[in-house]
């Protein structure tokens, strides 16, 4: 954001605009509009927003098992004895766990990569939670890995990388069925399609 846009504004207001401007998809104009909206909020609502930001930063941690975001590690899913410990479903981000859970068709565990390999954006294997995945796969009780990265070019590349670099020879590796349209994202796929894709998962 340029200095002229905020010159003349009170320093604390300018600072809020600047912080909001850092958020993805928020340009200088939207940042200004949001800042003025926040100023006009009743005190308790504005403090509730600030408190939610503070609390999420203080309380949210990565689950030591699945790397999902959680208030306590291991997360609810990983510490639930009724979940099937033999199957791990690998997804790109926490929203995909929510999408899969909504289908109620998967009773195993997850592993959240927090992204995909994206060479053009400088994101390689080391920027993802892959080391943690490979060490979970070393446990003999794990017999199947469902790779549920999005059916995009980068999602497929990530799936191929995982397949090439995991060390087990006796692991069943499956892929969500091709019912999922290419270029789609799990987040925007309806539950019926996702359930079908999961039930029809194929060995690769």
């Amino acid at each position: 954001m340029t200095q002229e846009n905020i010159s003349g504004a009170a320093p604390s207001l300018a600072r809020l605009v600047q912080e909001l401007n850092r958020l993805p998809g928020i340009g200088p104009k939207s940042a200004q509009r949001l800042a003025y909206y926040i100023i006009r909020l009743p005190d308790d609502e504005a403090y509730a927003l600030a408190d939610a930001v503070t609390s999420v930063k203080q309380n949210i941690v990565f689950c030591e098992e699945c790397q999902n975001l959680t208030d306590a590690s291991p997360c609810q899913i990983c510490s639930d004895p009724r979940r099937d410990q033999t199957i791990i479903c690998v997804v790109e981000d926490p929203l995909d766990v929510l999408a899969m859970e909504r289908t109620r068709s998967f009773r195993g565990l997850y592993h959240v990569l927090h992204g995909v390999i994206s060479p053009i954006n400088g994101i390689g294997p080391d920027q993802l939670r892959l080391k943690e995945l490979f060490s979970r796969l070393d446990r003999p009780e794990v017999t199947e890995m469902v790779v549920a990265t999005n059916p995009t070019l980068e999602g497929e590349a990530t799936a191929m990388y995982i397949r090439r670099h995991q060390g087990r020879t006796d692991l069943r590796i499956t892929h969500l069925a091709r019912g999922l349209p290419v270029g789609g994202s799990l987040e925007y796929t309806d539950e019926t399609t996702l359930t079908k894709a999961f039930q029809g998962r194929q060995e690769i």
Binding site: T152, G183, E187, Y188, T193
Partner: peptide, 16 residues
């Protein structure tokens, strides 16, 4: 809306 499963652009905009 290209990331929606119902979009007619779906799958036509992948790199390469």
């Amino acid at each position: 809306g290209a990331r929606r499963a119902t979009s007619k652009l779906m799958g036509h905009l992948e790199p390469l």
